[in-house]
């Protein structure tokens, strides 16, 4: 029964990886920018959440309502002030700038908050679970995370397909210069896409922190790799592929966990590398899913 339990937990974990990957995938799809600081943006979101809930004494869920729009604004400004300029300079510059952020953020966080893990309290939800059989119980929070992953994917697809800003993002992904000829400032669209990517990352960061029982400054170095692996295993195309990729990674980690406590990360990475080798063509291009 252990293996059944591991499989169920793996699928649930996949939901968390999928949420983590959505923002990375969106930013690459629209702007062709790989945000090397994606994991650190997640961590930053979790810290913002902790800050608001400790200073204002509010609930985690309420803090999300503040943190997510705030991170959207930060992403928007970062794109307009720095990345837009970098984009014109070629492929290297945006990579280097996001890498710069990935170095700056954790070190600032340690300086301000120390290395200690900060709790993200969610009350009874943390331990609530549904007992399926003697050996299998499904945590309510992981289940909720997977459900939110599915909801976010559906919402993101509806947004891209049905709304004007969403269509603008797809058009900007195809051809930003021509979008400008339509009377739409593509820089604005890019900035909104990056804002959305930051907002999604922050949300993912909060969920990740909840799962880990708290957040530490260097979590981002781990989560950026998870998010990236989910995107690549899923095949860089649709958000549903990303969910599938997240689940594959989740399964690899939880099943490996049965054989040794130190194995999950290694096996997760090896499964990713294996998928990379086995895919008939490398990953060369991508589009925003429609």
């Amino acid at each position: 029964m252990n293996i059944v339990n591991a499989l169920i937990q793996g699928v649930l974990l996949g939901g968390l990886f999928a949420i983590s990957a959505l923002g990375l995938s969106l930013a690459f799809g629209v702007l062709k920018v790989v945000n090397l600081a994606h994991g650190q943006i997640m961590t930053l979101g979790a810290y913002f959440s902790v800050m608001t809930l400790t200073s204002l004494g509010m609930d985690v869920w309420l803090s999300i309502l503040i943190v997510v729009p705030a991170m959207f604004a930060i992403g928007y400004v970062v794109q307009r002030t720095m990345l837009q300029r970098a984009l014109r300079m070629g492929e290297l510059a945006p990579l280097m700038i996001t890498f710069g952020f990935s170095v700056i953020i954790p070190n600032v966080l340690i300086s301000v908050f120390t290395n200690n893990k900060l709790q993200i309290p969610i009350g009874d939800l943390a331990v609530a679970s549904i007992q399926v059989s003697d050996s299998i119980s499904i945590g309510v929070m992981p289940l909720l995370t997977l459900a939110i992953a599915v909801i976010l994917i559906v919402l993101l697809q509806l947004f891209l397909a049905r709304t004007r800003p969403g269509r603008n993002m797809r058009a900007a992904a195809d051809d930003p210069q021509t979008l400008s000829l339509m009377g739409v400032n593509y820089r604005n669209v890019y900035a909104m896409a990056m804002g959305l990517a930051f907002a999604l990352a922050a949300l993912a960061g909060v969920f990740f922190g909840i799962r880990q029982g708290g957040v530490t400054p260097f979590d981002g170095q781990l989560t950026v790799l998870f998010a990236f692996e989910a995107v690549i295993i899923g095949g860089l195309g649709s958000p549903w592929g990303t969910l599938a990729g997240g689940i594959v990674l989740g399964l690899a980690q939880t099943v490996a966990g049965l054989f040794g406590p130190e194995l999950p990360l290694l096996v997760g990475n090896l499964v990713f590398l294996l998928v990379l080798v086995l895919r008939p063509t490398g990953i060369v291009k991508s589009k925003v899913a429609s």
Binding site: F28, V34, L36, V224, L266, N269, L273, V277, G282, V284
Partner: peptide, 29 residues
């Protein structure tokens, strides 16, 4: 290199990072 070259640009960058992590995780075993 055969694994890493499956990726381009920014994804190559993170791919090399994953390889480094996996290498560390193997060495410490």
């Amino acid at each position: 290199s055969y694994v890493a070259f499956r990726l381009r640009g920014g994804y190559f960058a993170i791919g090399t990072w994953v390889i480094a992590e996996a290498t560390r995780q193997i060495v410490i075993r």
